[in-house]
Amino acid sequence: MSRGVHLFSAYQYVNKIRWRARINKSSTTDVPGLKGLTKDQFRDAIIKERKWELSNEGDAWFDLKRTNTFQHIQTVRGSSLSVPIGPYNQTWLIPAQEITNNNIQQNPQYH
Rank of each mutant, 00 (worst) to 15 (best):
8 F>I: 10
16 K>H: 12
16 K>Y: 10
87 P>F: 02
60 A>F: 15
57 E>G: 02
57 E>H: 00
16 K>Q: 09
88 Y>W: 05
50 R>H: 11
98 E>K: 01
33 G>N: 11
83 V>T: 12
23 I>G: 10
22 R>L: 02
96 A>M: 01
37 L>H: 03
91 T>F: 06
38 T>P: 11
24 N>T: 15
16 K>I: 04
86 G>C: 13
66 R>Q: 14
16 K>M: 09
73 I>H: 00
27 S>R: 10
20 R>K: 03
65 K>F: 10
92 W>R: 08
18 R>K: 14
81 L>Q: 09
68 N>V: 10
50 R>S: 08
102 N>W: 09
23 I>R: 11
48 K>G: 03
62 F>D: 12
66 R>N: 15
75 T>Y: 00
99 I>V: 09
97 Q>I: 08
76 V>D: 08
95 P>M: 00
59 D>R: 11
80 S>R: 01
3 R>L: 13
13 Y>N: 12
20 R>G: 06
77 R>V: 13
48 K>I: 03
47 I>A: 09
64 L>N: 04
76 V>E: 04
15 N>A: 07
76 V>K: 07
111 H>C: 11
56 N>M: 04
20 R>E: 10
55 S>W: 07
44 D>R: 10
86 G>L: 14
98 E>F: 04
85 I>T: 04
43 R>D: 09
32 P>I: 05
19 W>T: 12
1 M>D: 03
95 P>D: 00
65 K>R: 14
2 S>D: 14
38 T>Q: 15
43 R>G: 05
84 P>H: 02
70 F>N: 00
49 E>P: 02
61 W>V: 05
31 V>I: 10
42 F>N: 00
28 T>V: 13
38 T>I: 14
34 L>N: 01
7 L>I: 15
105 Q>S: 06
45 A>F: 00
48 K>Y: 04
20 R>C: 01
18 R>E: 10
101 N>S: 10
91 T>M: 07
35 K>S: 12
39 K>M: 04
13 Y>R: 05
34 L>H: 06
34 L>P: 03
33 G>V: 01
103 N>R: 11
108 P>Q: 01
104 I>L: 02
83 V>I: 03
75 T>A: 02
34 L>E: 01
94 I>P: 02
9 S>R: 07
47 I>V: 09
93 L>V: 13
39 K>A: 03
45 A>G: 04
86 G>M: 15
80 S>P: 03
70 F>P: 02
108 P>R: 08
84 P>C: 00
71 Q>P: 06
59 D>K: 11
36 G>L: 05
91 T>D: 14
9 S>E: 04
30 D>H: 10
15 N>M: 07
49 E>R: 00
60 A>W: 15
31 V>M: 14
77 R>C: 15
32 P>R: 09
